[in-house]
Simulated assay, not measured.
Amino acid sequence: MLSALTVGFATGFSLILAIGAQNAFVLRQGLLRQHVFALCLFCAASDAALIALGVAGFGAITGAWPLFPQIMALAGAAFLLVYGALRFRAAWRGGETLRAEGQAPSLRRTLATAAAFTWLNPHVYLDTVGLIGAVSTQFSPDARAAFGGGAVAASFVFFFGLGYGARWLAPLLRTAAAWRALDAGIGAVMWALAAKLIAGLG
């Protein structure tokens, strides 16, 4: 159980670590110190719902279509390899920065924007429902719940850490060197996850 929980946390944290539109938005709001708690809670709860769907739904789909895990594992590995390559390319080229400007919007507008970043982003479904669901099939039904719990915990830790730690993290992310290191690290993690998925097919 502890192993499944740890793998779930590491998998969820690694997938969510990439600085995309949603994470950059949370970071920006954290810099402005506006609606941080509500925003972090919304993003983490959305992830939790999608992760639960992936972990629970994958078992039902697998029962009806036994080859589905292998197909999703291959598709997930392909995505992770490509995404990792893109992060390595970004690290090689450099030049990435993050700036937060302007005034924070209202709570309603903030959550509406977060909803768009979360629920209208196809990569969110691939990460939470697809990839996490695929990795969860490597565990027994009992351990699968622990794996999902670890992934959910990673989302809460990440979003609240990003939102409330923004004022310390932002100066580092304004430097090109920090972004290159971050992108290289994300690329390495993505390729390691891809290798794990491929190895599980044997």
Rank of each mutant, 00 (worst) to 15 (best):
L32V: 07
E101K: 05
P141N: 10
L74A: 02
G63W: 10
R33T: 05
A45L: 15
R87Q: 15
A114W: 09
T137C: 08
A45T: 12
T128V: 08
A44D: 09
G102T: 09
A91D: 06
Q22D: 06
L131E: 07
G8E: 05
V124F: 08
A18E: 05
R93M: 08
R33C: 01
A60E: 09
L17R: 10
G59S: 10
Q138W: 04
T137N: 01
A90F: 08
R93C: 08
V26Q: 07
A75M: 10
H35F: 05
L50M: 10
P105D: 08
F9A: 08
A60P: 12
G59R: 03
L126Q: 04
A48Q: 07
R93V: 14
S3D: 07
A85C: 07
S106M: 04
L126H: 11
S3C: 06
L39A: 01
L107A: 10
M72E: 13
L107Q: 09
L31F: 11
A10S: 06
W92E: 12
Q103V: 13
G133T: 10
W119A: 15
V36Q: 00
A64N: 05
L5Q: 00
F68R: 03
A44Q: 01
D47V: 11
A56G: 07
P66I: 06
I16M: 11
T6F: 12
C43I: 03
R99Q: 14
V36T: 02
L50Y: 02
G84F: 05
L111Y: 10
L5P: 00
R93F: 07
S3M: 10
G133V: 04
A48H: 03
T118G: 12
S106T: 13
R87A: 14
F117T: 12
G76V: 05
T6Y: 04
C43R: 06
V7M: 09
R93D: 00
I51Q: 01
V26W: 09
L27Q: 03
G133R: 01
Q103L: 14
F88Q: 06
A104M: 08
